[in-house]
Design a binder for these strands. Structure first.
Length: 581
RNA sequence: CGGGGCGUGGCGCAGCCUGGAAGCGCACCUGCUUUGGGAGCAGGGGGUCGCUGGUUCAAAUCCAGUCGCCCCGACCA
């Protein structure tokens, strides 16, 4: 039985808008007394938030258990050597929180748990007969993010559901991946959210294939690109767009040097020579460690530095300066892949270039460009790959439809890891042939606090939150307008008791505050059913029920039986309120 | 890390330009009245003006530094 009296509960609501918050979910959680900030990106969760989090976590546990997941809890503090084994001690850089124990041993605060779970696996898994195994935990993570934002949307300390699976074969991982994909869809649907699944970049976690579950939202911390026909959606950081091939019938013309005074930009050259930017080749320089990288890309496209870093396999990419460019024999503004010191530079050619014919490119001579440059006839490359930034308005790689960019919140991310961690850490098993092989792994994350914020983003209005019944911190709010009148308070107590005995989670607002304040708090808290026990109606032995989502009002007899019946009619009986649809 | 903004009772802010007794609204405490959409009257408590240093007879105010927080970008598991 769940009956909570507001007068004895911790419900510190705010009347005024907090200036520190921009996002609706952030503002509302502060105003409703759900969270309080301790430091940038570090929050205390107050009782009201915990109640909702319990329900969200229950949904996650049910869906994870349904596909064979086993809940565990791993430590939050890890020995740094474990992270050194996979090289991520360096890769994560300043995002890792460090500390030392009394003996001076280095420890890190866990930002994710691939190393820890793989350590467990290498100690415990010996045989294919033990597989597959699926573990998960709901636990606090710390990532010293350079810019926390939006309250729980991107916090430094946050709660994450992270899951890890171990398989004897890629096929078995693929089978499980489809299951968890569906489980994730179930979780977000049960939280009342319609997410878009996008192809994603595995990033620092690694692996071959990954998907993100995105909630479109103008305040989101991430962006994705989506085809108007819905057959392609990908995170903006790894999205590809179609690069049209030039007419193969167009003959390859001979190289020709032309004077192009004061044409330092693609726009200037294209205009001067009367060709569209897409018939030009642009040179872009980067520095990766000691290495200079020369990227050649079609003039109308831009370099996606993330893709480039992945193609090169390095994280320390930065734009090169003029001096560095000149050192390899290139002329800034007129740089060309022809005539540079190939021994001093790595040439990366975007895959737009081989598809194009007779391009205008720099001549490596101030004031001159080359016409009719063709790859590979006129220059060579170390790497040919897609390193272009996909943009709004470009063509879908699948169907050629228009691509659209949307801001979104990344709620979940699933990865096929393969053997990245098992190989690095020596987590092997004996397969059916008795051969020792590295475990095949997958990993799966959901930001639980971010999910809470997302639910509020999706379910609120100007006056406050509007909880889906099965996520609401309470199901019914019984508000006694003037609790100093003993008869009124007694009547409210009786109704609240009856509702609680019938299985509803009830908050009894018995605080001695003005009616207006109570009504405003009721809107703010967004509890689905408000039962108003006021002098006016009670005089006629009536109470009023108000439904939060639409404000619909219902007058019923002020007796427990009638109120319980009407409430049941409005939000369903206990068994029917399960969050399973 | 680059750009912008802000630190003054619990919250929201004014005062700073032009140095001279720390103020306003809300909240809080006491009493009385009031109770159907953020009540009224009366009385009251609470702030080393983020911190450090400097200039000055005198600093919330001017100068230098520093810390914290928010927003945009970079980054992002």
């Amino acid at each position: 039985m769940a009956l909570v009296r507001a007068s004895q509960y911790f419900l510190p609501t705010w009347k005024e808008e907090p200036t520190e918050a921009e996002l609706p979910s952030h503002k509302l959680m502060l105003r409703a007394g759900m969270i309080r900030k301790l430091a940038a990106g570090i929050y205390t969760y107050l009782p009201l938030a915990r109640r909702v989090l319990h329900k969200i976590e229950t949904i996650i546990r049910e869906e994870m258990d349904a596909i064979g997941g086993m809940e565990i809890t791993m430590p939050m503090v890890h020995p740094a050597e474990l992270w050194a084994e996979t090289g991520r001690l360096q890769e994560f850089g300043p995002i890792l929180g460090h500390l030392r124990d009394r003996a001076g041993r280095e420890l890190v605060l866990g930002p994710t748990h691939e190393e820890v779970i793989t350590d467990l696996a290498r100690r415990e898994i010996r045989s294919w007969r033990q597989l597959p195994l699926v573990f998960y935990q709901i636990q606090t993570k710390f990532r010293d993010e350079p810019r926390p934002r939006g309250g729980l949307v991107r916090a430094r300390e946050f709660t994450m559901k992270d899951g890890y699976s171990f398989h004897e074969s890629q096929e078995d991982l693929d089978r499980f991946y489809r299951k968890i994909y569906q489980a994730y869809l179930n979780i977000f649907r049960r939280c009342g959210l319609s997410v878009v699944v996008v192809e994603a970049d595995p990033g620092l976690i690694g692996g071959s294939e990954s998907h993100e579950f995105m909630l479109p939202n103008p305040f989101g911390e991430d962006s994705f690109i989506q085809c108007e026909h819905g057959d392609y959606a990908a995170n903006l950081e790894s999205a590809v767009s179609r690069k049209e091939e030039d007419d193969p019938a167009e003959p390859l013309l001979p190289l020709e040097e032309v004077a192009t005074p004061d044409c330092y930009t693609i726009e200037a050259v294209a205009q001067f020579l009367g060709v569209p930017p897409r018939k030009t080749a642009k040179a872009v320089f980067y520095r990766a460690g000691e290495e200079l990288v020369f990227v050649v890309i079609r003039g109308d496209l831009e370099v996606n530095e993330g893709k480039l870093a992945r193609v090169l396999g390095r994280a320390d990419l930065r734009p090169a300066n003029e001096e560095e460019i000149a050192r390899v024999g290139a002329v800034p503004g007129y740089a060309s892949p022809r005539g540079i010191r190939r021994d001093r530079v790595k040439v990366v050619v975007d895959d737009s270039i081989p598809k194009a014919r007779n391009l205008v490119a720099g001549a490596n001579r101030a004031g001159f460009h080359l016409k009719n440059v063709n790859f590979p006839r006129d220059f060579s490359a170390d790497i040919v790959a897609d390193v272009a930034l996909a943009k709004e308005g470009q063509a879908c790689p699948r169907c050629g439809g228009r691509l659209k960019v949307q801001r979104a919140m990344e709620l979940g991310h699933i990865f096929k890891l393969g053997t990245k961690y098992s190989e690095a850490m020596g987590a092997t098993f004996l397969d059916r042939e008795g051969k020792s092989r590295p475990l095949i792994m997958g990993c799966y994350g959901i930001g639980v606090g971010r999910l809470l914020a997302a639910v509020i983003e999706a379910h609120h209005d100007e006056e406050g939150m509007i909880w889906p019944v099965h996520l609401a911190p309470f199901e019914v709010l019984v508000s006694v307008l003037d609790p100093k009148q003993g008869a009124l308070l007694e009547s409210g107590e009786k109704l609240a008791q009856a509702l609680a005995e019938s299985g509803f989670e009830v908050l009894l607002d018995d605080r001695d505050q003005s009616a207006g304040e109570k009504f405003h708090d009721a809107k703010l808290l967004g509890i689905p059913i408000l039962v108003i026990v006021g002098p006016r109606a009670v005089k006629q032995n009536q109470v009023e029920l108000e439904r939060r989502p639409d404000g619909a009002k219902f007058l019923v007899a002020g007796e427990p039986k009638a109120v319980v019946e009407k409430t049941t009619e409005l939000i369903g009986a206990k068994g029917q309120r399960a969050s399973t649809s």
